[in-house]
Design a protein around this nucleic acid. Sequence first.
RNA 1: CCGGCCGUAGUCUAGCCUGGACUAGGACGUCGGCCUUCCACGCCGAGGACCCGGGUUCGAAUCCCGGCGGCCGCACCA
Length: 548
Amino acid sequence: MELKPAGIEEIMRFLIREAVVFPTAEIYSSKQAFSGFYTFGHLGTLLVEEIKRLWRRRFIWSKERVYEISGSILTPTIVWKASGHLDSFWDPIVFCTRCNRTFRADHLIEEKLNLKAEGKSVDELTEIIRSNGLKCPVCGGVLSDVRRHYLMFKTKVGVSVEDNAVLRPETAQVIFLSYPRIRNVFGKPPFGIAQIGRSYRNEISPRRGLFRLREFEQMEIEYFVLRDAKCIPFSREEAERKGIVGEDLRYRPKCMDCKRCQVNNCPYFTEEYRKTLLRILTREAQLKGSEEVVEITADEAVKRGILPNEWMAYVLAEEVRFLTEDLGVPFNAIRFREMLPEETPHYSAGNFDLEICFSFGWKEIVGNAYRTDYDLTKHMKMSGVKMLEEVNGVKVVPHVIEPSIGIERTILTILSYAYVKAKVDRKYDWLKLHRKVAPVKAAVLPLMMPREYAREESKIARDIWRRLCEETEYHIVYDEKGSIGSRYKRYDQWGVPYCITVDADTMRDNTVTIRDRDTRKQVRVKLEKIPAIVTNLIKGRIKFSHLE
RNA sequence: CCGGCCGUAGUCUAGCCUGGACUAGGACGUCGGCCUUCCACGCCGAGGACCCGGGUUCGAAUCCCGGCGGCCGCACCA
């Protein structure tokens, strides 16, 4: 199947035009730039809520032992000192002193001198530039000292003169901070702590509308699982410490042969998840410069060692089902890419990022990290609070598997495959949203204008609407403004799956018409059956064609 | 911070090169009125714009300079 994602610029134009989302403070945009921040309008807010609801149903409510929290956004600096963000969450930047161009220092060194620059300090990078006489690649001017561009927003809390707080650059740390208390109330791992909330990053240059933002929202879970201390090493350092060095032992966890601990025993990894198909772009393929994905079941992926453990396999399978079954994203538009060692974040022992085929290429919308015991160990050291559990007589720190979904990127994903351009039959752009994510499930529309003879019709239509509001759990709208054609257009643009029209015949035989958005077909049905029909259609219990 | 493209009503756009008939044209939307209204577009009417500042000129949406902003590229990863 050929993939045809809609263009991102086109989608953004549509979203802004229809006030789904729009730039924050846009009335001042000609006076002060403030890019990377968006305000959600009516439909945008509803869409976000629908995505969150579906995510909660799937990842939290239908699972045993996943608990949700909502942490604060402003956090004390010490948290980020412990987590390592203060040390590693910045980009090294150099300026040309002649032409003022900016470059990423590490990229420049790797590209021009062919030296490894990843993870080097500012001083080291400056030294490399000086000793190799590296000049501005554009004008040949002298380069400045290397400076840090911090991706975290810092601020002051209270009367302090020093920056003592930061706007969290990820939601995860607040979960780790909450771990001891949640654990004390809900008991020993395995369990998950979920959180939906905003994060802040001072990106050098926000681009592509909702894709790279400075304020964005994540839906995230940290699954805490206990690892047997005798398990196979999960890092080269640990392997060396234990004196085990093998050809097969790469910098990544290898739990697939071991059933001894919880890391490779995921209670959520049931039969249906085991047989879920995954498309994986392995490190091996990437190193060969190949784009070829392996398509196998989640179960096979663990058995063959393509995935590190059952938890990771479960997480990937759940994500595929979420995107395809709840959000209507085509299966082929999804792939998982194992990050190369040098790309992997400082806290991770292996990332399998979920990438989507966008109009501008395959891009990450979900990060799946095996954070091991990195974060809890760091916080334990910095805070002095013990977070140990006993496994087979040995004290261990729980391991963490983290799926983190970007909400705004998810919206772009949905729209890339739901946005339909104007054609001859429908001369306007509209949204073919999957019935489950469509924020408005139906619209009730009286056919005639409310004049004397039509007053009765309008009243009946309102009554139907009220009944739908009471008897279904959905958001249904009522609208009698404008010609019927322009109302169909309006609700096609909102991605509303069904429209119900009331006309003169309704008064005679108590029937109304229900219209299917995708086919534009209409059928007459008994008025009293409408709430049940709408519910069944949305739940997928019946198909529209069955009504005909 | 650099390069490329760009800035006309709520939206899309004509005009700009070749300055004056531009009192800035059109379409959609909005508002008011009329009309028993099933797939944007029944009829009539109304309101609404040249990003900001300076310059050239008798005259600037149009030419020049500066500023401010936008998109794309580098960058990056939710």
